[in-house]
């Protein structure tokens, strides 16, 4: 193992040799990083700068010789498209809460009780293949003559109108199934670090099961829960296909869909980009929060 460096007073001497070596090393490092940095700048940072730039121009005048700079797009969002912003946040919040409420017990059982964990992990990758196939499949599952139709008919829900009768619920469900694995993995990581003997200790000290949960388990797994919630939230902010296939006009107001329609169908690049900037700001705020709370998971 590395020696602990001991501090002893010594007359100062020039350390030019060390410094130049460090510089050379740093330069090599930057060289190794260069391809990644160049790619990220050209295809991620610069496009986002363009996005901001375009959002400050009227319609598609950015591509003309003299673009017309204006704040109108943001004014328009404030005046007319605020419900779109709220729908985006509302759906993301509800879907992430759904994940939390159903994902926490799932993670707990998985960590403490289940032997066939790898099977669960493997099956859990299906939603990760993307919301497109998932939503597509959910349409079939809850559609007419779907595999669950007899079940719904049995409990008195009309399976033929199910898909269209509950657009918001279906949308939230679809979003939640997609992000469920993210929640579970974060809570699993947090719970794995909670020593089971702490639960046993709480029980021997007379705690009831729900007290064990509220006083020991939840406080100790809280950072993972928060990280999981924020990651789910981040994904759900960008939702596109789920409301398109499962929701109605109200859910389809989400920003991703709206900006696609504005920019790519109506060629109002200015407004579409402004929506993109708003969505980006929301997503980055969430990312920033989740990195703050789950310090060390990815960064350092």
């Amino acid at each position: 193992m590395a020696e602990v460096v001991v501090d002893t007073p010594v007359p100062p001497r020039s350390t030019v040799g060390d410094e130049s070596r460090d510089w050379r090393k740093a330069l090599t490092g930057v060289g190794l990083l260069a391809p990644a940095i160049v790619i990220a700048i050209i295809f991620s940072i610069i496009p986002l700068i363009y996005l901001i730039n375009v959002s400050l121009t009227r319609e598609s005048t950015f591509f003309f010789n003299n673009p017309q700079y204006t704040f109108d797009n943001y004014r328009l969002i404030w005046n007319r498209y605020l419900p779109h912003v709220w729908t985006t946040i509302r759906l993301a919040t509800l879907a992430s809460l759904f994940c939390l409420i159903f994902g926490y017990p799932f993670a707990y059982i998985l960590v403490r009780k289940v032997q066939y964990r790898d099977l669960v992990r493997i099956l859990m990758t299906f939603p990760l293949f993307g919301p497109l196939y998932l939503t597509y499949g959910i349409r079939f599952v809850f559609g007419v003559n779907g595999p669950l139709a007899p079940l719904f008919d049995f409990i008195g829900v009309d399976s033929r109108t199910l898909l269209f009768a509950y657009p918001e619920q279906m949308t939230i469900f679809g979003m939640a199934v997609f992000t469920f694995p993210f929640m579970v993995m974060n809570v699993v990581a947090a719970l794995t670090n909670v020593d089971p003997t702490l639960e046993e200790a709480a029980r021997t000290l007379g705690s009831r099961p729900w007290q064990v949960f509220t006083r020991v388990l939840f406080p100790l797994s809280w950072p993972g829960v928060l990280a999981g919630f924020l990651i789910c939230f981040g994904w759900n902010l960008g939702v596109f296909i789920v409301p398109m296939l499962l929701g109605n006009i109200e859910q389809q107001r989400v920003l991703s869909l709206a900006l696609y329609q504005k920019a790519m169908s109506q060629f109002d690049y200015g407004l579409g980009s402004a929506m993109g900037v708003v969505l980006m700001l929301l997503a980055f705020t969430v990312t920033w929060l989740s990195l703050r709370f789950s310090r060390g998971a990815l960064a350092t």
Binding site: S44, L48, G238, F240, L259, A263, G276, A283
Partner: peptide, 29 residues
């Protein structure tokens, strides 16, 4: 030993946190 490592890493990860539609639109621009 690269100065500003955290910032660089964060900048590299920006695309990871950008919603797909935003990335799509900005790249199309």
């Amino acid at each position: 030993p690269i100065p500003g490592k955290r910032t660089i890493l964060a900048a590299l990860n920006v695309s990871l946190y950008t919603p797909g539609a935003v990335m799509g639109l900005s790249l199309s621009l």
